[in-house]
């Protein structure tokens, strides 16, 4: 009876999740630090817009600069919020000047996607340091062309508006169907989902940074506060999600490492582009979580020395 029943593959299911949410989706997932290198890809080799996911390579480049002794992580920076890129979180939302250590600025950039912190940090290390890190790790299709301030300035110009607030309001106009450079990987910071999981794998395997910086990077990424995307796919006890989101207009992304106790960590990168221009689309956020869950479930495997034994969920 079951002979004629075709079960959808994980790739089929992920494609259906994206279609049902009204978005185009790209996904890559890989088991970290596992010589079997199990992977899953849904258009994972295509170039996609990074949006605020660019803060991840920037953060790791900062850690590499600290490792090289070129930056003092605990050095103090005075930041005047009104001089910075606007944003709803972190220093960007502050009213008064603050003095913080570089590593706390970096943590604010990662945990709450603080735009002001990102531009301060980019100003500290420059895009050259980011390019050096990407080159060292062989990520040739990832390109950082500037910070949030640059993207926002171009948005204001392209939407013929005067402020960032007006530009974002214009992008949500249902009748406009904008094709701005921030949506085009040829003109803005971009990567491929496969390169993003390779970057995360390099961090989790310890090959990208010193042991101290690796631990710092993992701890900061686990502290990201957003629960609505990849984390929504794993509402289980004991699971840690170490991620970085990215959002601009119709673009909604997240890359993360999903850590189940006693199992190999799994890196997953999900990039989407919605049909609707509405500023809030919970259906797409949830689709990112569901697609990640389908991908990660297919790659789960116990660590070799785990006394609990093999997981019944292993299928890769």
């Amino acid at each position: 009876m079951n002979g004629g029943v075709r079960r959808d593959t994980a790739v089929d299911r992920i494609r259906a999740v994206f279609a049902d949410a009204g978005c185009t989706g790209w996904l890559h997932a890989r088991r970290c630090a596992d010589p079997r290198a199990a992977m899953l890809s849904v258009r994972g080799d295509e170039r996609v817009v990074l949006a605020s996911v660019y803060k991840l390579p920037l953060f790791l480049a900062f850690c590499a600069e600290v490792d090289a002794g070129r930056l003092d992580a605990s050095g103090q920076l005075r930041i005047v919020p009104s001089d910075c890129t606007p944003g709803p979180t972190g220093i960007a939302s502050f009213r008064d000047p603050v003095t913080m250590s570089r590593r706390d600025v970096a943590a604010s950039m990662m945990t709450v996607s603080d735009n002001a912190a990102a531009d301060v940090l980019l100003g500290e290390i420059g895009t050259t340091a980011v390019e050096e890190l990407l080159t060292r790790l062989g990520l040739t299709r990832t390109r950082i062309v500037g910070g949030t301030a640059d993207v926002y300035q171009r948005l204001v110009e392209e939407t013929d508006t005067r402020t960032t607030v007006e530009a974002f309001r214009a992008l949500t106009d249902i009748d406009a169907a904008w094709t701005v450079s921030a949506y085009d990987p040829a003109y803005t910071s971009a990567t491929t989902p496969e390169e993003m999981t390779r970057l995360l794998e390099a961090v989790w395997s310890g090959s990208a940074l010193s042991p101290e910086s690796t631990a710092f990077a993992q701890q900061v990424m686990r502290a990201q506060i957003w629960p609505h995307r990849i984390a929504s796919g794993f509402p289980h006890r004991g699971v840690a999600i170490a991620g970085k989101t990215g959002t601009i207009g119709i673009i909604r992304n997240e890359v993360a490492v999903v850590e189940f106790p006693g199992e190999y960590p799994i890196a997953v990168a999900v990039f989407t582009r919605a049909a609707r221009a509405d500023p809030v689309l919970p259906v797409v956020d949830a689709a990112i979580g569901e697609a990640a869950r389908i991908a990660v479930t297919g790659l789960r495997a116990p660590l070799p020395d785990d006394p609990a034994g093999p997981s019944s969920a292993e299928s890769a």
Partner: peptide, 11 residues
């Protein structure tokens, strides 16, 4: 209809 996924087509 708009909005719709029209990737790969000229709209």
């Amino acid at each position: 209809e708009h909005p719709a996924l029209t990737e790969g087509l000229d709209a």
